[in-house]
């Protein structure tokens, strides 16, 4: 169970949102919606502890995340705007490297490449890939090493339909195994049963 209570966010001396509450239970998904600039990316980065909330607390099974931030980070996967894929390494090397850095005991690199249909590119250096293939390599991290919570910020950017389908399947499989998903996305991801968190642009008060 991953919860946020009374989360507030400040960016560049400006309040973006305040008093935000959310809960993600095992097997559940939470979809963030709202216009540009309402703080979807910020909220996901706060959930990943990449950004400090101006107020409020995150809890994991009732325990404050701030007590053990490293433990929390090891429990999650974050897919942001950048792919974190190294052009000098092949697809397989990229995925395996992150699996190793996540201290994965059973390496699922091959399964991950199959899940995102890039196994045929395994030995190609990623600098030769298209944007969509690049994105798939980044997403394959999700499968290559297990993590309970997936934080996805516009994960379908530059993916084609087939790629989106791969992601949908991966998310469904993850939730079937009691995984949690928190995603900001404009595209239907097979998350009809997901909770929706609507973010509103804040009225400016100084």
């Amino acid at each position: 169970m991953f919860q946020g209570r009374d989360i507030a966010c400040e960016r560049g001396e400006r309040r973006i949102f305040t008093g935000l509450n959310f809960t993600v239970a095992p097997g559940q998904a939470l979809v963030l919606q709202g216009p540009n600039g309402c703080g979807k990316t910020s909220l996901i980065r706060i959930a990943a502890t990449l950004l400090k909330a101006a107020d409020g607390a995150l809890t994991w099974n009732g325990i404050d995340v701030a007590e053990n931030p490293e433990g929390h980070r090891a429990n999650l996967h974050y897919i942001g705007h950048q792919d974190a894929v190294k052009g000098a390494l092949s697809v397989r090397e990229n995925i395996a490297m992150w699996a190793r850095i996540r201290a994965t005991t059973d390496d699922q690199t091959e399964a991950a490449m199959a899940a995102f249909d890039i196994a045929h590119l395994a030995d190609t250096p990623t600098q030769y890939l298209s944007a969509g293939q690049h994105r798939r390599t980044a997403l394959a991290r999700l499968v290559a090493s297990p993590a309970k919570l997936w934080l996805l910020d516009e994960p379908t950017v530059s993916l084609d339909q087939a790629g989106t389908a791969c992601l949908q399947q991966a998310i469904a499989a993850h939730r079937a195994k009691n995984g949690m998903v928190m995603a900001a996305t404009h595209i239907e991801l097979g998350l009809d049963d997901a909770q929706i968190l609507q973010l509103q642009p804040q009225l400016m008060t100084l």
Partner: peptide
């Protein structure tokens, strides 16, 4: 620049 640094910080180390 390519986002690897934030991924590294999420390694749990």
């Amino acid at each position: 620049e390519d986002g690897s640094l934030e991924q590294l910080t999420l390694s749990g180390l």
